[in-house]
Amino acid sequence: MTRTVFCRKYQKELEALPFPPMPGKRGEELFENISKQAWEEWQSQQTMLINEKHLSLMDPNNRKYLQAQMERFFNNEPFDKAEGYVPPEK
């Protein structure tokens, strides 16, 4: 049986992540409160931000920026998006 969590982003029970997405307390918090769907959507947004803004994950300021944007994304607050991105038509 698939584990579910009450997803903070979508405010409903959804399929959970199979394991914490990062080490430590922060990873455990995400594991308990963020759905697999929300995490996958964030990963897409994060990749676009890294590419668009030429962020280096070696830079602590860039990591702090991404953490802040991730929090905004999961809290349904306005967050930075890649400028000029047009999603493909279905």
Rank of each mutant, 00 (worst) to 15 (best):
T2I: 14
R3C: 05
R8S: 07
K9T: 10
K9N: 06
Q11N: 15
K12N: 13
K12T: 11
E13Q: 15
E13F: 13
E13N: 13
L14Y: 05
E15K: 15
P18L: 14
F19K: 14
P20D: 04
P21K: 01
K25R: 15
E28M: 11
E28V: 10
E29S: 09
L30Q: 00
F31N: 03
F31Y: 15
N33K: 15
S35M: 08
S35T: 04
K36H: 10
A38G: 05
W39G: 00
W39F: 10
W39N: 02
E41W: 06
S44E: 13
T47S: 14
L49W: 02
N51R: 10
N51P: 01
E52P: 02
E52F: 07
K53P: 00
L55S: 01
S56Y: 03
S56K: 04
P60F: 06
P60G: 06
R63V: 08
K64Y: 09
K64Q: 15
Y65R: 08
L66R: 02
Q67G: 11
F74I: 06
N76A: 12
E77N: 08
E77A: 14
P78R: 12
D80L: 09
A82M: 09
E83F: 10
E83K: 14
Y85F: 14
P88A: 10
E89N: 09
E89A: 12
K90I: 12
K90R: 10
K90T: 05
